[in-house]
Design a protein around this nucleic acid. Sequence first.
DNA 1: TCAAAAACGTAGTATAGCTACATTTCGAAG
DNA 2: CTTCGAAATGTAGCTATACTACGTTTTTGA
Lengths: 293, 293
Amino acid sequence: MTTHFMIRVQTARDADELSRQERKVSEFVLSAPEEAMRLSLARLAEAVGVSEPTVLRFCRKLGCANLQEFRIKMASAEAIGLPATHAEIAPGSSMADIAARVLDFSVSNLDNLRRQIDTDALQRIVDLLIGARSIHFWGNGASGIVARDAQQKFPLFGIPCLAETDSHQILINASTLSARDVVVVFSNTGRNSTMMPSVVAARANGASVVVVTSNSGSPLARAASLACCVPTLDNTDIYTPTISRIAALCVVDMLAIAVAQTRDSLACRKIKTMKETIVNVFRDDSSSPHGNE
Amino acid sequence: MTTHFMIRVQTARDADELSRQERKVSEFVLSAPEEAMRLSLARLAEAVGVSEPTVLRFCRKLGCANLQEFRIKMASAEAIGLPATHAEIAPGSSMADIAARVLDFSVSNLDNLRRQIDTDALQRIVDLLIGARSIHFWGNGASGIVARDAQQKFPLFGIPCLAETDSHQILINASTLSARDVVVVFSNTGRNSTMMPSVVAARANGASVVVVTSNSGSPLARAASLACCVPTLDNTDIYTPTISRIAALCVVDMLAIAVAQTRDSLACRKIKTMKETIVNVFRDDSSSPHGNE
DNA sequence: TCAAAAACGTAGTATAGCTACATTTCGAAG
DNA sequence: CTTCGAAATGTAGCTATACTACGTTTTTGA
């Protein structure tokens, strides 16, 4: 994957991978990436103050076969808004830096998700949800947010839904389930130990349990009827934004759309009517889970 | 912006902007974009079955000064995936299509946000939050999710926080506020009419009210002490994923990071300790708003 | 201090991109 | 149907580009 080319350039500079002249090239590239990818070899060498072969040697050290490939990787990195420096946010950053890096990190992650997500697993989940008598969304902490979001969406397609974020309530909920009920558990690590007894209880009662997690080999994933892996770039630094919520929210969107699509168009018309009603009553579509709120 | 280049190619083909031979080029480009941007002029012309100048004329018609620029735009477009205009999801799409488009749309939006966000406004909000005695997050519907998310984060920096998502509770909450209290209202449209009385009441009591919205000219934005505009690409179609939550969640991250950074490092150490504790107790950092959940 | 190795630049070559111009194709008027 | 003109397309040739082989300089370590 070519996702983090600018970071590759930076680490190459910071580590001792580059020679003195090559480092001059890397500094120019980092400070003026737009120019660097548009200039010809001769002009780039002149701008940096080194010879043409040195620039080429620099490109090769970064894993590019030739200047063309270097330019393509630069263009990709710039398009995706990759951070000029680390994705981790250094103390003392300006507001503009913080904003750029939070967004860069989020975009990189979604881009990553796009390439890795298991759509077959998603389809199997959709099949389960469509046949469900009721859907129960469980999640603690930040995953509780995702559960609530899902709960706001799905009832509109005509399926009764519940969201629980309290471990005790979740266990109580689990004991009330039976066959044709479907549980969707959100847990990024897949190691939420308080969740496990509830998953076991739910399955013992005949309910299907889907786990959405970033770790397909985790205990919860193994305990589930069906697991969907949502890979996230690991970064445990304190300043790192919590990306997995966002990835999980996107997954909720995908599932909701797929379910809506499969259900008859009547349901869709219902939603449209409801949305318009909400807009008219509140003069604010923020109350609709399907508004752009 | 060069975000939508592939769509530009497609519309050029579908409209009658291209000659017969040039259309052959466009078809090759659309069917094999990776190849098209890596091949040399001669090889590309050969692969398409036209002469070199025809390929160049094709590039020019698409607004590229030369082949280099064409390649850079291709690389950018490929990196960012399909553009937003194409992201509306047609009924009958496959799961893979749905997943790709939800993510493409989210990425396009965050990319857009990245270019437009008002970091000065954010900084002013941070200044307010740092001086706050307590912080109150308000939001209805999908914005309620965002409010809850914020409420999970900020107490860790040592600031007492409350999230309210019920209009009546919000109004009650508003009447209890005084100077040095800060309210953060989330409303994508900025037209949540039920929110207005509460905003007025809060300000009458001397509290500061910040509104995070996509519409800087909206009633709520005008009624606020401080407004932060979070632009989102409009798309009211039923299948459109609700992007603004995601954008708003990113804004919450930015604010949280900026506040954490400004507070003394003691607070940061506290969070680290807390996070470790949670991991040890629950064997799952999903319970921590700062875990990668 | 000296020799080996790495770094770097010079100069030369093949090729890539680009342009001016010739040829062909197509459409409309006679 | 023929003829003329304009648009479309290809040919051929020029310039600058990317890349390489080799020679020079600098650095390194004994």
